[in-house]
C-alpha cells in the first residue's frame, strides 16, 4: 500500500504509483492505493484514516529524522573575516548540531566575482576553514565536517565578472 502524507509546510505534493498494468496519481493527503501485484493495476485511490495510517506506518514514521537546517554566513570583501551578524549565528548552528547529533555537516565556501577564479577557490576554502575553526573550537569533531569551496562558480546572486556582491561572499552550513 502507498499513501501520500501531508506536507508539513502545506505545499502541494503528489505521487504517481505505476506498474506495467497501470498508473494512479495521488494528490491529496492520506490518499492511498493498494497494489496487489506488479502485473495488476493499482487500485482506485481511497482515503486512509489517520488512525489506520498510524497503525500501519507508525513505526517507520516515528524514526524519520529531523529535517536538515541551513545557515548562511557572510564575510567582508576579499577576506575570511565573518560579519558581526554572521558571528552571532554560531550558537544556533551549534544547537542544531547538538540537537541532531550530526555526523555529516557540510561547510561550503563561496565568493563574489572580484578576483580570479583560482584565487576565489582559495578564498572560498579559507572562509570555509574559518568556520571550521570556530566550530571545532566549540567542541565539534572535525571528522564530522565535510568542507569544500565552490569559489565563484555557485553564485547566490548572478552577476557578471568583477562584481563585489556581499550576498555572494558566504559560507553555507548544512546541518543534518
Amino acid at each position: 500500500m502507498f499513501v501520500l502524507l501531508p506536507d508539513p509546510e502545506g505545499k502541494p505534493a503528489g505521487i504517481v504509483v505505476s506498474n506495467r498494468a497501470g498508473t494512479q496519481d495521488l494528490n491529496q493527503p492520506y490518499q492511498a492505493v493498494r497494489v496487489e501485484r506488479s502485473d495488476v493495476a493499482p487500485s482506485a485511490p481511497f482515503t486512509l484514516g489517520q488512525a489506520e495510517t498510524r497503525r500501519l506506518f507508525g513505526a517507520a514514521l516515528e524514526v524519520l529524522p529531523l529535517p536538515e537546517v541551513f545557515f548562511t554566513l557572510h564575510f567582508d570583501q576579499n577576506t575570511d573575516i565573518l560579519t558581526a551578524e554572521s558571528q552571532a549565528q554560531f550558537s544556533a548552528i551549534l544547537n542544531a548540531i547538538r540537537e541532531r547529533r550530526s555526523t555529516a555537516i557540510t561547510i561550503t565556501g563561496h565568493t563574489d566575482t572580484t578576483g580570479t577564479a583560482q584565487a576565489n577557490y582559495q578564498l572560498g576554502l579559507r572562509r570555509a576553514e574559518r568556520v571550521v575553526g570556530v566550530l571545532t573550537a566549540q567542541g565539534v569533531d572535525a571528522s564530522k565536517l565535510l568542507v569544500s569551496s565552490h569559489g565563484d562558480a555557485d553564485l547566490l546572486v548572478n552577476t557578471g565578472r568583477g562584481v563585489a556582491e556581499a550576498r555572494n561572499r558566504r559560507v553555507e552550513v548544512i546541518v543534518r
Binding site: 500500500m1 502507498f2 499513501v3 501520500l4 502524507l5 501531508p6 506536507d7 508539513p8 505545499k11 505534493a13 503528489g14 505521487i15 504517481v16 504509483v17 505505476s18 506498474n19 497494489v35 496487489e36 501485484r37 506488479s38 493499482p42 495510517t53 500501519l56 506506518f57 517507520a60 514514521l61
Partner: peptide, 19 residues
C-alpha cells in the same frame, strides 16, 4: 521501486508498506 510498482514523487511525504 517496490516489488509491486514504482512510485514517482514530487516534494512529498509518503509511506509504503509491502504486505
Amino acid at each position: 521501486e517496490t516489488p509491486v510498482g514504482v512510485v514517482g514523487l514530487r516534494g512529498t511525504h509518503l509511506a509504503i508498506t509491502i504486505e
